[in-house]
Design a binder for these strands. Sequence first.
DNA 1: GTTATCATTTCTGTATACAATCTTGTTGTT
DNA 2: AACAACAAGATTGTATACAGAAATGATAAC
Lengths: 222, 222
Amino acid sequence: MRASDRAYRKLLDEIVAGELPAGTVLGEVEQSERLGVSRTPLREAFNRLVADGMLDSESGRGVVVSQLSLETVTELYEVREGLEEQAARLAAQRADRELFKKLWDEFENSKSLILGGEIGANIFYELNAKFDDAIDEAIQNPYMVTTLKNVRNHMARVRKLARSNPARLLEAANETQLIVEAIATGDAALAAHATHVHLHKSHSRVSAAVREQLAKINKEVA
Amino acid sequence: MRASDRAYRKLLDEIVAGELPAGTVLGEVEQSERLGVSRTPLREAFNRLVADGMLDSESGRGVVVSQLSLETVTELYEVREGLEEQAARLAAQRADRELFKKLWDEFENSKSLILGGEIGANIFYELNAKFDDAIDEAIQNPYMVTTLKNVRNHMARVRKLARSNPARLLEAANETQLIVEAIATGDAALAAHATHVHLHKSHSRVSAAVREQLAKINKEVA
DNA sequence: GTTATCATTTCTGTATACAATCTTGTTGTT
DNA sequence: AACAACAAGATTGTATACAGAAATGATAAC
């Protein structure tokens, strides 16, 4: 693996995990020493992360981890609505229906587990990742997949900022299951609308969680 | 301006203009000498273009100008449908209506000119660019704007491959005018649906033009 | 006490040298 | 004649050195 790839992956992971919080200024020399790569591949990683929207290139003065606010979360959901409704529609038209029928069963089986705390949450996230992969495969559109993957990185960062409780995860699982069902039966309109509903509710849940989290952080600062 | 920016811009322009046709292999040394920059900023430009989807990084063996086929055009339109319908919807909710009323007048005045050949086509493209800028300003979503700008670069490349005739441009102008009208009156649903209609028809027109163009190229090869 | 200017220092941007990997062509063997 | 192995060449990836720009802090003048 290339040094630039390692630097990119490490920094992305740390940003998504919140270990490098929003606003953190990253110097080239500093980070190249920390990550054990020279400045050239590190700059390559920086550039990719700027293109991804994870870093902002603060006019000449270093790069900064991009802000995460209620506004940016809303912006993210607005893009998700456009892209994921379309993706669901296309998936319903093109997907291997058997695969989505199996996925439906997996959601069904997972429900009881999801309410069971930490492990349940992991099962939920793994199942969601599986759903995302199935969508990517189904839509047969590399360009859209690239765009979706970037959106998901941002979403992962948002989720880390404010993990949901089991009850909310179960809600999300039920909503997603309906999307899976629509795709499994080739109902494109339902797939799109169910995605819309899911994103609307998810936006509410995430906003509430982020609001709490941001309030907590502000309290700590004060 | 930085050397890496110049290299990026020059290469992007050349790819969009078709001067660097699909499939062209670009060597680092070769291109850095041609563009008068060293390999470091050139690699930066290459990486950005790969991220944009304009170049493909052919496993170790140089970068290649990405292919443009009927399939990739369709993929592009599928992403456009998702993003631009959403953008139109948001613009209808948030835009400065006066600005779009003025834009509507400009479309109205341009119609007679568009049928007038070369100059008319330029007027059409300038007006379209103005429309795009107005959308970007209206939606107030930097993340979505970034994504839209990339899509537009790809579309510019497609258009260069197969320029339309005046009659088709007029059709497109009328369709776009309806979108402008919907935004000017705050009709989000109409804005989204008019965008859908426009993209559907535009896809047909562009596909036909690209098909002709590709046939011509194949003839030349044979 | 405040402000402006200049020097110091740090950081970014670019060029280039070096190392490692992958291609390709040639030669030898079956 | 076909295939494999090896060597020569080219090309990518990384490190580092150098130049130029920008920020910071100090000093002096008002």
